[in-house]
């Protein structure tokens, strides 16, 4: 698995499905007609959404609206859930990633994920970051690996805080540091997309601000999709916002527009804290 991209663009796969470009911004991921159900219960209905490249896209909506279900489709995390059925097309660089022929492990190297609660492995800080590159064979020797670990920790804004204790357990860090360690771990395998499912909900305002600043920097290199319950956070860090309600995508657009004058009444009711 040296180049996961290569596996995904073999001739068996269909030609690029969509090259939608909204307002001159290249689209990294295009979801069309995505439906998800858990057994009999349908969780997502016919979602069409374009994720712009190297921008932050925020998915917002009340609990149970399907935003986490949707973000999990983007790296096929729903594969592991029994009874979960996903249909539709999610086009990434011309390949439908929902296609069973697409290797999920390779996909997840390209589409990294950071979760709500920081979940470092019970290993050293160094090993937490080195784990992914090791299994994906990204480093041929110790020197390369040191470079990957150092670069990833620097990009995650953690290097200065941990450079003297790389071999102490990752779990010994503070909550905010642990979350940045998880981000370093996610970017160590050189993904193109980073998914974040409420990355700051367990953090204090200072740690949250550091993560938000980090997200802002990371968008130079990565396409970021985040689920957040904090409207202010969505407004602060994202450039595009999608509002989900009862499994439907109600509104999507420029973050500034969505938060100053949304088109849909349900979006308005949600973001202004009214009963929908």
């Amino acid at each position: 698995m040296v180049n996961p991209m290569k596996d995904m663009t073999t001739e068996e796969h269909p030609a690029p499905l969509l090259h939608a470009v909204a307002q001159g911004v290249p689209i990294k991921i295009s979801a069309r007609g995505v439906c998800v159900s858990y057994g009999d219960k349908q969780a997502l209905f016919d979602i069409d959404l374009d994720i712009p490249e190297r921008k932050v896209t925020a998915l917002i909506g009340p609990s149970g609206c399907g935003k986490s279900t949707f973000i999990r489709c983007l790296n096929r995390m729903n594969d592991v859930i029994e009874n979960c059925h996903v249909s539709g097309v999610i086009d990434m660089d011309g390949v439908n990633i929902l296609d069973k022929k697409v290797d999920a492990v390779g996909l997840r190297a390209r589409v990294g994920m950071v979760f709500q609660k920081p979940n470092p492995f019970p290993k050293s800080i160094y090993e937490n970051v080195a784990y992914g590159p090791k299994i994906h064979g990204l480093a041929s020797n110790k020197k390369d690996m040191d470079a990957i670990v150092g670069k990833s920790l620097s990009r995650a804004g953690l290097w200065d805080e941990v450079k003297d204790r790389l071999h102490s357990p990752g779990t010994g860090l503070s909550g905010g540091q642990q979350q940045r360690l998880c981000i370093a771990r996610a970017i160590a395998v050189r993904p193109q997309v980073i998914l974040m499912d409420e990355p700051c909900s367990a953090l204090d305002p200072i740690a949250t601000a550091k993560i938000e600043e980090l997200i802002d920097e990371l968008k130079e290199k990565f396409t970021i999709v985040m689920v957040t319950h904090s409207m202010q956070q969505a407004a602060r860090v994202s450039q595009a916002t999608a509002y989900f309600h009862l499994g439907q995508l109600v509104e999507k657009g420029d973050t500034k527009k969505v938060f100053t004058s949304p088109d849909d009444e349900r979006t308005q009711a949600y973001i202004t804290g009214r009963i929908g």
Binding site: M231, Q232, A235, F259, T260, S261, P262, T267, Q268, I271, T272
Partner: peptide, 9 residues
């Protein structure tokens, strides 16, 4: 209150 949308306007 950090008003949004119609409230902000």
């Amino acid at each position: 209150r950090q008003p949004m949308a119609e409230d902000l306007r």
